[in-house]
Nucleic acid binder design. Structure first.
Length: 686
DNA sequence: TTCTCGAGCAAGCAC
DNA sequence: TGCTCGAGAA
């Protein structure tokens, strides 16, 4: 027997050594999912499967990296396998590679640019504006909502009408118009050689379904392993199915209790009903939890038990632990006391030898950490934040990426539009006019980016040329140079412009180094953008200010970004009703249940210490009531039965009453009463 | 046509 | 709190 098999339990070993067409591993949190998947990969390699014939699909680059490194390590112990890596990455990243490779066969321009979410929304907004001949009285969906309606229809293969009903019911009367906008969007993308995230999956699906191309693609792989299968959407299921039909052995790993991506078309039923889709599917269930104390699992189990459906697995801790600390719920007077409490506890843990890196503060939405971040900075506690504002969402980063995109795909109108508006004296009208004339060009496809830049120059107002000339020169000279050289040259070319546009340019320019560095790994400049978009660095800290390696830092993370991670101590903050569950999710039962799973994911990140906090009084910001606040209720998931399993305390407010959540009344009622009183009498504390 | 400034408003999670 | 949109001045 191979050494790495000895450390596994029976179920894990069964999963690792399974030999057949399709395997499903149902693995609750902390049950050794990563270990099992890595060991299975290592096992395959040890049996002689060559690494590049194993395809590992994950939902985050971090997961792919971890898994690939571990399997390599395990296999290396057997001394039979060289340190070569399996093929791995996110669905979108693998799709991207495949489409670049087969672009010509797929009828896609090999120079295509990739639109991220925001880019896609911009293009949609643009085609909508172009179609709006008469001034519509009704105010439509925001461009972001527009994008999510589109994406939903595509990913769930459902009508626009249906998607609107789910996402923006107030727009239901305009379904026809939205469909027309989406048609125009599709056409526009094709003309300009643009692909959005959804297109990546659609084209990949088309590829694997095609008789010849699909066979060719699939023949490159013997085994396909898919992590977090509860988070796949219909398109991804189709891809998996097509690969299975082409004789790839499939391993699906997931946990329906941790399905938290319904908003992008995922559904846990694909995992649950996998036995119907895959012939000969064998199922292995992992139930022993190696992560958390039984105290923590009891709370998670109780939360699970109260779900109307699903949550089949009840977790049992492997750790016999007499002295385990109970789960702590802390009711805080307001946000200040919540923040102070968390900071104090973190420091206290640190004094007891728990490194900051082994402590995490997790929350429902990115901005929930804003208050805490200020205080951490004030107290000089270093931290990294996962999720939230991404490095590549920063304006100046997108500016340089736009230039990179143009350098490869001179047709990329959104990139041109973005770049042109930076120039002094060029506003939306001029930029639009120039982009239009580029698109009108009969020889659109045959011109080089530098040719197009020269055309642009002629259309610019005099004052803008001074800034544009370096760009023109950068684009013109770029041909023939290596990618890193071009990347650096273009960065230099855009610097004067960015200095003129941004007041804090000196800070921003530093960020661009990361882009230039990334270029050294890329075959083409537009891949720099793809690299960042598809395999995003998970924290802003990764790139912005590389914290020195030996430094310790606290982890802040959204619940979504925390999935798959574990920490000695976890603080779940802002666990008030309205935040968890988010009041935006309350319109449907599925929405509410997804929020329950979200809390479940949050709780099960903790190994030894779990603290849940919520501020009783918090500010919110309706117009005209700058000082308004409302009184929060604890999350409705903190039911009496859950509360029996935890200890309660309070800080910054009166004696703690084990306040029972389960409020059927939304916090909006308390808040509206409070608002009225504030309006009449002013704020009580100010 | 661009730019500036103030009023009004909106809201998340992510490849 | 931070952005988008509209009005008005350059």
């Amino acid at each position: 027997m191979f050494a790495f098999l000895e450390d596994l339990n029976d179920q894990q070993r069964e999963a690792v050594t399974y030999d057949g067409p399709a395997l499903r591993v149902l693995a609750g949190p902390g049950t050794g999912k990563t270990t099992t998947l890595s060991a299975r990969t290592a096992h395959l390699l040890t049996l002689g499967v060559s690494p590049e014939r194993v395809l590992l699909l994950t939902f985050s680059r971090r997961a792919a990296r971890v898994m690939m490194a571990r399997s390599r390590q395990m296999a290396a112990v057997e001394r039979r396998v060289r340190g070569q890596s399996v093929t791995g990455g996110t669905f979108h990243a693998i799709a991207h590679h495949a489409i670049r490779h087969y672009a010509v066969n797929l009828g896609v321009s090999p120079d295509f640019s990739l639109l991220d979410q925001a880019d896609a929304a911009d293009v949609l907004d643009l085609v909508r504006a172009e179609r709006r001949t008469t001034k519509s009285v009704r105010r439509g969906a925001s461009k972001a909502t527009l994008a999510s309606i589109y994406s939903r229809s595509v990913n769930m293969s459902q009508s626009v009408q249906q998607s609107i009903a789910e996402v923006a019911p107030w727009c239901s009367d305009d379904a026809e118009e939205y469909s027309a906008v989406f048609r125009a969007y599709v056409t526009r993308k094709r003309t300009l050689a643009l692909l959005d995230f959804d297109d990546l999956l659609l084209y990949w699906r088309a590829l694997v379904r095609d008789d010849q191309l699909g066979a060719r693609f699939a023949s490159g792989f013997d085994h396909v392993l898919i992590d977090e299968y509860q988070d796949v959407n219909a398109t991804q299921v189709d891809i998996a199915t097509a690969l299975a039909q082409r004789e790839c052995s499939l391993t699906l790993v997931g946990d329906d209790a941790q399905a938290i991506y319904g908003f992008r078309g995922s559904s846990p039923r694909y995992l649950i009903e996998a036995d119907a889709s895959f012939v000969g599917l064998r199922t292995v269930t992992l139930e022993t939890n190696y992560r958390s104390t039984q105290e923590i699992l009891n709370v998670a189990n109780q939360l699970a038990r109260e779900a109307p459906v699903g949550f089949s697995a009840i977790l049992t801790s492997h750790q016999p632990d007499a002295g385990a600390r109970p789960v702590h719920v802390v009711q805080c007077g307001d946000e200040d006391s919540q923040t102070a409490y968390v900071c104090d506890q973190v420091l206290e843990n640190l004094e007891h030898g728990v490194r900051l890196q082994d402590q995490a503060v997790i929350f429902r939405t990115s901005h929930h950490s804003a208050h805490l971040e200020l205080e951490l900075t004030r107290r000089r506690i270093p931290y990294v934040k996962y999720g939230g504002l991404r490095y590549l969402e920063a304006a100046h980063v997108k500016d340089l990426l736009a230039l990179y995109r143009i350098a490869d795909n001179g047709r990329d109108s959104p990139a041109w539009f973005r770049l042109l508006r930076l120039l002094p004296g060029v506003g939306p009208v001029t930029a639009r006019r120039i982009v239009d004339s580029l698109e009108m060009d009969a020889q659109l496809e045959s011109r080089t980016p530098a040719d197009r830049a020269a055309m642009v120059r002629d259309l610019l107002p005099e004052g803008a040329r001074r800034f544009f000339d370096p760009l023109l020169e950068g684009l013109a000279n770029a041909t023939g140079d290596t990618v890193p050289l071009r990347a650096d040259r273009l960065r230099s070319a855009i610097e004067p412009l960015l200095c003129a546009v941004y007041e804090d340019a000196d800070v921003r320019l530093v960020d661009l180094d990361a882009l230039v560095n990334a270029a050294s790994q890329c075959a083409r400049l537009s891949d720099v953008s793809s690299l960042f978009v598809l395999e995003p660095t998970t924290s802003t800290g990764d790139l912005a200010d590389d914290p020195s390696i030996d430094e310790d830092w606290l982890v802040l993370s959204t619940i979504h970004s925390a999935k798959g991670l574990e920490f000695h101590s976890v603080f779940v903050i802002h666990a008030a009703d309205g935040n968890i569950p988010s009041d935006m999710a309350l319109s449907s039962d599925e929405g509410l249940e997804e929020e329950r799973r979200l809390l479940y994911v949050a709780l099960t990140r903790a190994r030894r210490q779990l603290t849940v906090t919520f501020p009783l009084r918090f500010h919110h910001k309706p117009p005209k009531h700058p000082d308004a606040h409302s009184w929060a209720l604890p999350s409705r998931f903190l039911t009496p039965a859950v509360c029996e399993l935890v200890t309660w305390s309070s800080v910054g407010c009166e004696e703690a009453t084990p306040y029972v959540g389960g409020a059927a009344t939304p916090s909006a009622i308390t808040s509206s009463v409070e608002l009225l009183l504030t309006e009449l009498f002013g704020s009580a504390t100010s």
